[in-house]
Design a protein around this nucleic acid. Structure first.
Lengths: 135, 135
DNA sequence: ATACGTGTATTATATCACTTAATACACTTA
DNA sequence: TAAGTGTATTAAGTGATATAATACACGTAT
């Protein structure tokens, strides 16, 4: 909770994904990891658009989703600010993590792999081959 | 390894994803889980297209990717057959699992969550809240 | 040889998501 | 008043996806 302006955000933009989605993901990450302080002022839509050489509309789309996430708040005529509520951030992170995990588990299930198989893979980078489909 | 024709495949198609990708994922899954026997004959492009009420070109796109995966083989004038090699299937499953896992780990990292956090979530559906970003 | 069923290639068209562009408006602060 | 906010609108272009209508080469069965 610094209340300062957000530092110079280092964005890594490519063409593998929609641009607005990359902004969204990277700002989400920066907030979740505390790289952006709570209450900080985000760069303005036009400012960020110019820095990233994008259209302001594209940046705005990302900003609107951030507000839907509850991670930012708009103040008319003033700008966009990161939420001051650590609970909001926690809550958001938990919800998104749950979503990622569910999707991941579904992928694993579709390959006939169990949680034990996954743990084996993670613990020592070798055979995720063991369960299911032994023909 | 039955060598039979593949049974009536139950496809679940919606509009949340490209159609060819849904076919691809579901056939991959069916092979990985052994629901489709090795060496089985796949339905023809036109046949499946009619059953799913899609354009043959769309089905063909999925079939072409399946062959790139090494999961199917084409026999000219005859049809498309599931590979007879269990090693191929194993290899494919391992590779795809690794890809899924890497992507998932990156997602978790972007939220500042560790592997321990994930295990906690999976073991008992509760707080993935603990590590990182405690502001 | 003929007919049929394979996979494949081609060309054209349509739709949709994404992005850019150029404005204009309402609000806040200096 | 002037400058900087977020926002809305309209128009246009691009690329991925999907459909449609053909046509071709190959293998098998008749």
């Amino acid at each position: 909770m610094t209340g300062q302006e957000v530092g110079p955000l280092r964005f890594q933009i490519d063409f593998s994904q929609p641009l607005y989605e990359q902004i969204l993901d990277q700002v989400r990450s920066a907030i979740a990891k505390g790289e952006i302080g709570l209450g900080d002022k985000m760069p303005s839509v036009r400012e960020l658009a110019q820095e990233l050489r994008m259209n302001p509309n594209t940046v705005m789309r990302a900003y609107q989703e951030l507000e839907r996430d509850g991670l930012t708040e708009k103040r008319r005529g003033q700008g966009t600010y990161v939420t001051s509520s650590p609970e909001r951030v926690k809550q958001f992170r938990t919800a998104l993590a749950a979503q990622y995990i569910e999707a991941f588990m579904a992928q694993m299930e579709s390959l006939g792999l169990t949680w034990d198989d996954i743990e084996q893979y993670v613990n020592h980078k070798s055979a995720a081959d063991k369960g299911g489909a032994d023909q």
